[in-house]
Structures are given as C-alpha cells and as structure tokens.
Design a protein around this nucleic acid. Structure first.
Lengths: 381, 381
DNA sequence: GTAGAGTGTGGGAGCGCTCCCACGAAGGCA
DNA sequence: TGCCTTCGTGGGAGCGCTCCCACACTCTAC
C-alpha cells in the first residue's frame, strides 16, 4: 500500500556480468582446458577467483603442498610455506568452502535455532544474551553462527531438510518446550546439539541450564524472611522444564518454612508481560490479601508491578515482587526490581563451547551443565 | 611420475580419520545395505546419506533425469518423474548442498549483516522489525537467512573472507554509517546487496529507505501548527544519512514557516535512550524556554521525556515531544508518544525482494526504493 | 657399503552434484 | 519418402578441494 516510489537506477551499466565467478564460463564452445598449453598458459587468472591449483602453479609447488599450508599442517618446509603464502597473497586466494565441505563434510557453521516468533525473540532480553554469549565464544573460532527462526510446522520441515542436507556441523536449540518435536528430530538426525534447558530429568541430549529451582527457593526464602505471609507465584509456561523447576523451588521454600502450598496462589502465565498482567489481576481477585509475588521472569514481574500500581498497591510496601533473569528490564522498573540472576550470557557461552567439543569428538558423549543462580536484591522486595 | 597404486579402497575401514557423517561407522552393527543389489560392484555405500546416483539406480533412470526431477525441470516424462519421486521417498534422499554449490556457485542463502553490538541489535525494535520483514519475504523461497553481527575490525575481516569464499548469494546491510567500509567492500566484491538506508544521494548500491526528510517535516509542521515557538530537535548520529535527512526535514519545516534555524536548538545524539537523555538535559540548559522537541527516534524521545519529567516539565503541556519510528516504545511511554511511522517491516520485506531480484538477474541493475512515512498522533504532541 | 627410518612432496582419485552434448524415438512438413 | 525438429534421456566432464599413497631425498645405524 501507499506510494512506493521506485526508480530504477541510472546508467550503472556494467557490460559484463555482475558476479565474479561468471567470468569462468567463456562464451560458447571453447573447450575449457584444451589450450592449457605449456607452462602455465593460464591467462594470469584475471578476474575469476583463483583456485588452489593456480596458487600451486604460481608458487611452483603441488596442490597438496598448498593445501597443507592453508590448513596449517606442520609437514611443510619453510621454503615451500613462504612461496605458497606469497602466492596466496599475490592472487588474493580464499579457499572455496563448498569444495572443502564436499570433501570433508564439515561446514564450519552451526545453527542457533529459535522456535519462537521474532517478536518474542526480540522482546525478551534472554535471547539477546544467549546470542551474545554464543557469538563471544565463537569469535575465537572460524565457526559461523546461523540464526534460524522456526515458527510453524512448515518452517520446522524446512529446518529438517536443511539439517539433513548437512548444512551445519551442529545445532544450538533454545526455548525447549515439553512437546517440541525439535529435540527428537535432532536426536534422530544424530547431529551434535546442545539445548538451553531440557525437556526433563532424563534429557538425553546435551544441555546447559540454570539452577532454576535453587534460584526460586532463594527468592521465596527472601520473601518469607521479610515477613511475607501470602506469597504468590506467577509461572512460566508449564510445558517448559525451567518454568516447572521454578515452581518447584517456590513450593520447596514454602514447605521448608512449614507453610502450605496453595493452588490459588499460583498464577500460570507464559513469560510475557501481558501474561504477567493477566495473572496478577486474577491473583488479586482470588487473593486480595496477597503480600508477595515471585514471578518466573522479569518481564512478567514488570507486568505484575504495573497491575499492582493500577490497583493501588505499593511495591514493595503492600506487595513485594521478585522477578527472574535479572535482565535489563529489572533495572528499569520503578521501583528497581529484585530478581534472580541467571547467567544467561554465560549459558550461551557454555552452550557454544560444549557444542564445539561435541563436534570435535564426533559427538559421542553427552554433557550437561548446570549454572548457579543468585538473588540480586533491589527495591521491589 | 608417481605410479599411484590404485588399490580399491577397502571396506571403509579408515583407521584414524573420522568423518562427519558418523553413521557411516559400521562398527559392529549390521551392514545396512543388505542386498547391495546386482551389478554394481560398489559396496553399495552402506547407510550413509543416499546420493543422487543411488536414487537413479533405484528408479532405473540416469543421473541427469533425477537431477531434472529434483530441480523441477519440465522436460521429464511423467513416468520417469514418478519413478524418481518414489525412489527419493524410499531412500529419504536430500540433495547435498555443498555439491550443488560447488557446481552452480549458488548457495541459496543470504546474509543479513548488522554492524552493531548485539545490545543495540536487540534493544532497538528497528532491527527486530527488519528481520521480521526479511524473513517473512524469504519464507516463500528456500533461501536461508544468516544473521551476521560485525562489531569490530577483526570481525569485519572475517566477514570479508566469508563473503569472498562465496558463502552467500547476497547481502543485506542495515545501519549504514557514512564511513563504514562495508558498503565499499560489497561494491568491490561485486556481490548482490541491498542496504537499509544509504550513504548519501549518490549511493551506487541498491537500497531501501524511508522518506526521512518528509517524515521530519510532517512532525515539525505539526508542532508549529500546535503553536510551538521554540522547537528543538535531538538528532541521530550525523554520520548516518537517515539522521541527516531527518535534521534536514526539521530545518525545511522551520524555514517554510519563516522561522529561523538555530544551532543551539539542535541536540546531537546517537539514537540511544541514554543519548536522548543527555541531549535533552543540555537543551534544557541552553534553552530553558524550549516548548517542543522532535526526536529522530522513539527511544531517544523516551529518554527525553524522562528528563523532562524529572525537570518538572509536563508533556505535552510544557514541552511537546515527537519521536520517530513509531516503534512499540512509542505506545508504552506515559503519555503515549506521537511519532513518525516508518514502515520498517515493509522495508525489510522490500529489501529481501530486491535482493532476490538482483540475485536472479545476476545483479545488473541497481534499484532504490523510498517508502512513505506518516505521522501517528498520540498524546505527547 | 646396505638397510632402515624418517621427511617433504606431487598428484591421482573422488566427494555429489549440474551442465551439456549426443543419441534414439517420435512427430511435422515438404 | 526423406529431412528436419522436437522431446526425453544417459552419461561424460568437471566444479575446487582434501585425502592418501608413492616417491624422491635425506639422515642415521650397522
């Protein structure tokens, strides 16, 4: 809709084709190699990308030697190495990855699969931090990170074909839901992979997650220590193990304090701000005397705080609030939010490291890592 | 010279070198290729991924025919097509992309290059919307989107090598700064590419951008119409053409109303919330009587509004504020923000479309598209 | 002297695909 | 009837790499 002024550009007329490699195809007929002639009759490679063979010719060595130099093999004489490096520099040689992949079946790239809409991807700092950690860890390697969003069945099928076609060496999967078919797919494809979180206790794939139950316990203990008597919780989607673990931690803290676990103090939600608001409204209705809320994410806690304010409750005086994640959101609420910090970037970093290890050793051993959480006390509780 | 004895490679029994396709390792397992069939002396390649050749054998046709079917060529008889499809289904054949790429030098993937830290990438809804649009457009194709962050010189070099190694068919580049070497790199690599925004009027690469000057004009006219007399502006980084264009629009609107353009009503900033705050504080100091601010981004406007409130100015009564982007931020400020909407998702979509076109036609013609902006009036002005 | 054990090296084979040429069969037209 | 098209088809020839084997060459030890 609306006017889309589209003006084709002016001259810009490159007669030849735009791409570099196009040059390779020399018009009609003309057998490619026949006139290879004596010595290196090759026309100095001109524009087309130089190949390893051309480097070898220029350096006066064989293909094997160039390959060895490029791949850092020690079994090359100093003289040959220098000649090759000079030739590489002169020609501006860069190895063709497809050719290498074809032989080695390694792609030097890994996929970060996010089974969520991009709205969630970007509204939650969680993903940003994961990506941050992953790419930090990868920065030292020459692995390339591909970000793949999977939002529906169709895209799931595309991903499946993509992975089957051997286009990545390994997969990082975040946001794991109980019934998500993706982990099983990864299992059956036998492709190295690491999950952020897990499906359950018996997760067979490698994973990294935070001590969710422990963090939740700390948070609730803190609330109880402050004297709160009616501690509610707003949960994440319970088809995610992390959300269940946080709920379990909440329950454990109550029970170890000899307090009852009451169903109607539990507000199920979905990690979104809107969900947090909704759950908070319902809690206020069911339990007007509630004096504390432990939320399974900062974003939900932010929503809850808005609802509380709108309902005329002061935070933390009337109702104490604790979030989870200690994301940037926690620092920007009014009052600043007490939150359980989970080292998300560290998780991303660890995931990447584990995946690289798994790829390197042909991915037999699974590994699972749990990272500690801690309570960051600010003003909301 | 070298004789190179050609002993038929044994039964896959490579000692050391493990290869990617793990499954190949026969170990103790059953030889999956039971009746390797008649004729073919080849050890039936066992379990590993089926190749086109195996499909051809099973379907009783030649390689060429299978290739034609897989690539949807019309020049195949119905009978052959069915036989091939049946064989593909039976074997679970998926083409090997590396092999295809090696021949065609097409990779079926494009890169979205973001020359920013991931903090900015995620804190600004702009990028999220761009990605959203791009992936929406790509959803119908079998192009894969790679997201590549470039944060420093080192990563820029890696990107350069990556692109030179022909690993993508085209590049989308967002957030273009004046002195950014990336566009020139793309030019010299002669790789199809589309920018979000441009370096200047004479941008030789394809690009998509919004009518920044027009949007800014509308905003400032609106402020003047409301009776504001001291209209300030907080700009984006002036090494970005978009930021300059918004400033130019601000100036044009003033001049067409016969009002002077005053340097000290211009607060240079950097599109971030923090920058917006800083600039607003300085403006208040220099020009306490300021009664309106046009900000070149919503995020900066949000920062400015916080500063104004802290300084005891009411929005819009004392100072009217207008943002730019009409991002989700604009709807969440208090009061809700009047903002210039630019169709960011549409921009992403368009960028992807242009890039696909450019790739398809070997990237001869450059194309440039300007999308209209509109003023969304809410409560802040 | 010879054998043996290294080193560095060239280059054949082949990864799985697409491109393209040649070829037989079927049709169209004089 | 002959001759030219058209169609569908098989399969050779590579794409640019890595792998690995055979071959000089060195050294050492006897």
């Amino acid at each position: 809709m609306s006017q889309t002024a589209q003006r084709p550009t002016g001259p810009q007329g490159e007669p030849g084709s735009g791409r570099g490699q196009a040059t390779a195809r020399p018009g009609s007929g003309s057998g490619p190699g026949p006139g290879s002639g004596p010595g290196s009759a090759r026309p100095a490679s001109a524009s087309a990308r130089p190949t390893l063979e051309e480097v070898a010719a220029l350096a006066g060595v064989g293909r094997g030697t160039v390959s060895r130099v490029v791949n850092g093999s020690p079994r090359v004489s100093e003289k040959a190495r220098e000649a090759v490096n000079a030739a590489i520099a002169e020609l501006g040689y860069v190895p063709n990855r497809a050719a290498r992949t074809l032989v080695t079946s390694r792609t030097d790239s890994i996929a970060l699969v996010v089974p969520e809409a991009e709205t969630r991807l970007f509204s939650e700092p969680y993903f940003s931090d994961i990506i941050s950690g992953v790419s930090a860890e990868l920065a030292e390697t020459d692995m390339q990170l591909l970000l793949i969003l999977v939002r529906n069945q169709r895209e799931r099928e595309r991903l499946s074909a993509y992975l089957t076609a051997q286009r990545v060496d390994g997969v990082l999967l975040v946001s794991v839901h109980q019934d998500d078919p993706l982990p099983s797919l990864l299992e059956s494809l036998e492709i190295p992979s690491v999950l952020a979180g897990r499906r359950g206790d018996l997760e067979p794939l490698s994973y990294v997650h935070a001590d969710n139950a422990g963090g939740a316990r700390m948070a609730v203990r803190h609330l109880l220590r402050r004297g709160c008597r009616q501690v509610a919780t707003i949960t994440g989607p319970l088809d995610m193990e992390g959300a269940r673990a946080r709920l379990a931690g909440y329950r454990q803290a109550l029970e170890e304090a000899g307090m009852p676990y009451l169903e109607d103090l539990v507000g199920p939600a979905d990690f979104t701000e809107e969900g947090g608001k909704l759950a908070m409204r319902e809690l206020l209705e069911r339990r007007p005397a509630v004096d504390a809320v432990f939320c399974a994410s900062d974003v939900m806690a932010a929503g809850a705080m808005q609802v509380l304010r709108a309902a005329g409750r002061r935070v933390p005086d009337d109702v104490a609030v604790i979030g989870f994640d200690d994301s940037i959101v926690a620092r920007h609420t009014e009052p600043a939010m007490t939150s359980v910090r989970q080292p998300i970037e560290e998780m991303g970093r660890t995931m990447a490291r584990l995946l690289l290890e798994e790829i390197a050793e042909q991915g037999r051993a699974r590994r699972q890592v749990v990272l500690a959480t801690e309570l960051v006390v600010r003003d909301s509780a």
